[in-house]
Each structure stands twice: as C-alpha cells, then as structure tokens.
Design a protein around this nucleic acid. Sequence first.
DNA 1: CATGAATGAGTATTCATTCAT
DNA 2: AATGAATGAATACTCATTCAT
Lengths: 209, 209, 209, 209
Amino acid sequence: MSTKTSTGRQSGTGRRAELLALAARLFAERGFVLTTVRDIAEAAGILSGSLYHHFDSKESMADEILRGFLDELFGTYAEIVAAELGPRKTLEAVVVASFESIHAHPAEVAIYQNEAKHLAQLERFAYLDERNREFRDLWNAILAEGVRTGAFRADLDIELVYRFIRDTVWVAVRWYNPDGPLSAHDVAEQYLGILLDGIATRRRPVRKG
Amino acid sequence: MSTKTSTGRQSGTGRRAELLALAARLFAERGFVLTTVRDIAEAAGILSGSLYHHFDSKESMADEILRGFLDELFGTYAEIVAAELGPRKTLEAVVVASFESIHAHPAEVAIYQNEAKHLAQLERFAYLDERNREFRDLWNAILAEGVRTGAFRADLDIELVYRFIRDTVWVAVRWYNPDGPLSAHDVAEQYLGILLDGIATRRRPVRKG
Amino acid sequence: MSTKTSTGRQSGTGRRAELLALAARLFAERGFVLTTVRDIAEAAGILSGSLYHHFDSKESMADEILRGFLDELFGTYAEIVAAELGPRKTLEAVVVASFESIHAHPAEVAIYQNEAKHLAQLERFAYLDERNREFRDLWNAILAEGVRTGAFRADLDIELVYRFIRDTVWVAVRWYNPDGPLSAHDVAEQYLGILLDGIATRRRPVRKG
Amino acid sequence: MSTKTSTGRQSGTGRRAELLALAARLFAERGFVLTTVRDIAEAAGILSGSLYHHFDSKESMADEILRGFLDELFGTYAEIVAAELGPRKTLEAVVVASFESIHAHPAEVAIYQNEAKHLAQLERFAYLDERNREFRDLWNAILAEGVRTGAFRADLDIELVYRFIRDTVWVAVRWYNPDGPLSAHDVAEQYLGILLDGIATRRRPVRKG
DNA sequence: CATGAATGAGTATTCATTCAT
DNA sequence: AATGAATGAATACTCATTCAT
C-alpha cells in the first residue's frame, strides 16, 4: 500500500515515474482503452502483473498522470491571473502557457483531450469536470473584462468565443510536434495574430464601423 | 453475402439504415471501441448474433457510416469550389457547409473526429487519409488564392491557419447541439467573424493599413 | 439479458439447469472459491467464456442455487408449522424434513453450510442472514412451546439447544451419503431418539426427578 | 533454512509465535484460501516477502498451527483415557476437554473444522486423517464400552452417535464466544445433559425400564 | 430474419513466491 | 530481519464472431 500512494508531486520516486511516463506516452498514442496493461509492462521490460507492485490499476495510472498535469497547468494559470496584466495581455499569456504545456507535456494533454469525456464518468475522475469549469470561468472572466474595457469587440458571444479558443488551442496537440521547426511560441503567436486581428486584410475599416 | 453489400447510397434498405443510424449514434457517444456489438443489437431489440445477418463486422458498420458521410460532404465541397466564388466567399461557404454537416450528421462527424486516427491504420479505411489530404488541399488552395488576391493577410502561415480552422470547425461537434438555440448558421457566422476580423477592437486601423 | 434471468423456479430451462447442477456439485465438493469457472465449464464440456452466455458471474450461479434451495426448504417448514402438530411432533417433522433435504439436495446444503458465512457479506446474499434468523425463530418457537406445554424439560437453555440441533442436523451433510444404506428417515429417527431421550440408560429415574 | 524449522513445541521463538498466532486468527476468520500472505504480513506490520524469512510457505504456517494444536489436544485425550474413569465419566471428560479446547484455541479449532477436508488432500497434511481416525476410535471405544456395561442404551448405532457428537461439539466453534457469558464448562454441561438424558420430559419412565 | 449456444482470443487483476540489496 | 522489485501462473470476465436451427 505504501508504495502505491502518489508521493505528492515530484512524479514519484524513480521507477514509478519512469513507468508513468511510459504509460502516458502509450495512452496518448493508442488511447486509454486500446492500451493494454501488457503494452505498458512490455514497454518497461517487465511482466504485466509486476505493474501492480507499483499501481493498483490501469485507471489509477491515468488518474495520477492527469492529476499531476492539471495541478501544474492550473498552477501556471493562477500565476498569470495573479499578475493582473489586463485582459489582452492575460489572454496572450494564457494562450502561450497552453501551447507551452502542449510542448512540454504532449502525452498528458493528449490524454486530457481524448479521454477526459470518457473518464470523467468515473467518480475518481470528478476533478476533470471541475477543472473544465475552472477553465471556462477563467476564459469567461478574461473575455468579459476585455469587452468591458473595450479591448475586445462588444458584439462577441463570449461563451462561443471561449469554446472556439479552447478547442483550437488544445486540439493542436494532435498535430503539434515538440521536435519540429515551430516552437510553442511561434504557434501561439500565429494563433494570437489570427484570433485578435483576423485573417482578413483591412482595406476599408471605415466600411465596417 | 448479397445483403451484406451496401446498396449504393440511398442510406441502405430500411432495416439496414435503421441499424446503421443506431450504430452511428452509439459509436459517437461511447466511441467505437467501447461500443459493443451487443450494445448496438440491444438498442435495435435483437440479439448480437443477428446483426451479422446485416453486416459482416463491427468495422464494416463504421466503414459504411463514414464512407457515406464523407461522400456526401465532399460532394458539397466540390459544388462550392465549382461555383468559383472567390477566396473569401468560398471560405465562408466551406465553413458554413461544415457547420451544417455537424448539424445534420453529428454522429458521423463525431466518429470522423474521434476514430479516424485509429481506424485509418486499417487498410479498408485508407480513404480517410485521402479525404484528409483532399480537405487540406481544398483549404490551402482557398487560403493561398486569398493571399494572392489580397483578400487575406500576406503574413499568414497558410499551413498553420488551415490547421487552426480545421480543428476549430470540426471539434465543435463536441459541444454543438442540433436542438439548441444556436443554428449552424449562427455558429458559422460568429466563427467567421472572429476568423476574418479577430476579436480585438480596431483602435488605430491606420497603423495596419 | 433475457436469458440471464432465472425464470421463477423450475430450475431454469434445460441447459441452464444442467449447468447449475454441475456448478452446485463442484461448489459443494471443492468449495466456492476453489471451484474455478473453468472447472464448471470443463465439466459441462464447453469453454469457460461460454458460461457467461447463461450466467453473468460465478456469484450469480451460487446465488441462484442457494435462493432456489432455500425457497423450497422454507416452504416445507412453513407447511409443517401450518399443520399445528404440537411441539414434539413439529420438532420431529422439522428434523425429518431437514435430513430429507440433505438427502435430496446434498450439494445445496453443503454450499449453504460451508459458504454462507462468507457469501453473506455480499449484499446480494443478504437473504442468507434473513433465512438464518427465520430458522432460529422457528426453533425457538418450537422449543419454547414445548417447554410451556411440558413436552420438553423446563431447565433447557433454549438458545443453546437450538444451536446444538441446528449444527448437528446440517453438519450431517458432511458425512451423509444419499446412496448409502441409511435413509434420511433412519438417520432422523436415530437422532431424534438421542435428542429426545438421551443416550444414557434410565436405571433410577427417581434419582433425577 | 535453519530458522524455518519449527523448534520443537514451545510455540516458537517470540516473533515466530506472534506471526503464527496472527496467521491462525486470519485463517480462522476468512478461511485459508481467502487469507493472503499479504494479509498476514500487513497484520504483522511487515511486507509480504518478509514473511518468507520465517516460514517457507503459507501452507507450512497452517501445518505448524494444526500440528501443534492437535498434538496438545490428543495429549489431553490420552491422559483422560489413561485415567480409566469408566465410559460415562470418560465421555464427560472428553466432551469437557473438547469444549475447553474450543475456548482456549478457537482459531485452531476453526481451521481444523473448516480447512481439514481440503488440506488433508496434501501429503504433508496426512496426519489430519490419522487424527480423525484416532478420534473416531476413541469415541467408538467409549460408546461400545458404555453399551457393554449398560451405561448407554443398547439400541444405539454407535457409528452414528459418534458422528452426531463429533459434529455438535466441534461445530460449536462457529458460535462459541470465549469472552461471552457462557464458559466452556457451562456449554459442556448443557450439552451433556441433552446428550445423556434427552430434551424430552419423562412422563412414564416405567415404560422404558 | 432472428435465436441461442458456443468459440477463442484477449483483458485487467491477484497472489504465492523469489531474491538481490 | 526486512525491503522492494519482480516472476509466473492462474482467475473471472468480455467480446467479436460463427453457425445450426
């Protein structure tokens, strides 16, 4: 039992952390359901039963992976909010931080993206829905504040904008390659360019106002 | 055997179509792997073995669902392109058509979104990758043309913009509710507003021009 | 699902009944835990997975076996009580009925004896404790009535006597052989002889009174 | 290896005895099969692997427990027989000694009762069957002698009476509570009362004489 | 068209036991 | 004496699929 409890957050003690990283990669690649416990064990060079010396179930591996990742991510968000940069800079910082988290933890983000809906039905993963709510609140606050201060257009459907942003940012994990030529910053910058100013040219801005 | 071949495209012959629709809904809700043949059979009020009188495998059900949906969707895209509306109008039409397909075939889109990566590894689903290429070419053409004609900003990374658009549009299937207050057109309009002009206000439009 | 529901009591429909009888015999011989699902399947000449076409778990087999047996047994007890034979005759009838049930359903009695304590911890087997209480009430009523009418000795610790009788009767399943020379009636008669009059000779009954 | 041999009988050397006592309690409560080596280790506050420093297997723990208990019990029986008290007093003494052993070693008796049948199939537990035979011989001798001397009724089926007594006495371990209000002597006395004189009142003792 | 019985390969998990440290 | 990591064999159960009726 003692070995099976996650020791705070430091990603566990040696072997445990290695195994979690392996599991995370496989869950991300093949999906949680299609990744067998044997797959993970084999990747680690041990027998499937031996995994249970470290974790009490496949589920608890996913739990530990997601919990740790989300704690870190939302810690970062909290820091950004605490800095009180104003809506536009806050929005930029949150987008950048999100793409950076895709860069640093692609497997974890992929699991969060692909398995959350399914896992959230289990009691033990109730925090997934909580985090979703938290994220939604964060964005609604940023956007509402921006509209109030005049930084963002007044005609926005905030809820809809939030959804578009959330989806575009996180789904990027499907194609973003941490080892590719584009850094997380590059991608964030491009996206912010589009999000803030659109892709259309401004020939006759007078016309629209 | 004769009955097990999809009879062209007319959505199958009665019972067959019913069963496919049921399967599609379940695949969309629970995912392809987590939906058991028994789930589908039970939903249809028959025993699981009886399904094999209509289809020769679970895979071939997904195949038929996706093939039919994609044929229809790309037919629509082809019509739009054939109309030669110019880059901006074409872009708008493609976005609208995509949201409309989410509205009309939410289950099919969801399956396409969630299972394509996994299914595409099977030979029989090779057309999924082809369709993806087709879609990518479509968008690259629209965007490149738009940049050339000056409709779109010249500093865009076209490949990246394509990805952002693709992701945002299709992932909307996760939250879009066909029975909700927002029509596909409403959503498309809002999205196009953001995509084309951005969410930021234009304090100094002079600067950009 | 439809096939997995016990159809009242008639011991199921054909195959189902056969399998239950096999399972009962094995549970009785080796114990519930040591009897593997494969053991049962092999005894039936099928593969272990095929058992799940008929029952949804090993537990539910034991459940069905015990439930059916106890329903029958307590039905018999109820009839005896309803006949209002007076304490002594009632006691005799209950003892005889019990030995007869050992004769007719040795496997079921053995399972009841050996596994009840363990199974009763599971919610689904809550009725086991209920039946135990019912049985205890039955005996306490018989004995108390007998003491009141003077049929039984007044110095008896009724609770203790009940336990002795219960244990002796049921544990007989461990050695009673339905195919042996002693019928259930023979055994019941011998036991009743001892229970009612003792094994000691009555040289000087005056002395005791 | 040297430490893994039971050191005569003195209940082991400290730690060893403690562990055996723990194991005995768990075996009695949950049964031998359902008690895991980890259960025992955890109860002792060590890891399961560490138990193998003391014992070479789970089986050998049960072996040591039963062997020690039976040696002591049959020692007591031998003393009683050696005292040559006559059939009735001998019977009383054996019954009392048996209930006393339930009082002093409830866990051991429970294991003997519940696991003997299963364990006796293993070579190393061959002595269980021997002890059973010994016990049967003891009782048959007492009862036969009693019938011969006229102490017991002549119409008894000795083998049957032996079984009834054996069962009733040992199965009492299932409900007897060493810390309850009834002492082993109380229970023995009540049981002997029933066994010797029956529970029925003597309306016409003349008839029997 | 559908049933009901079965297959066979796989899946997570358990557990007694071993052994280097 | 004890730990911690691992083995290997077994266990209950699942599920897509087949096929005689």
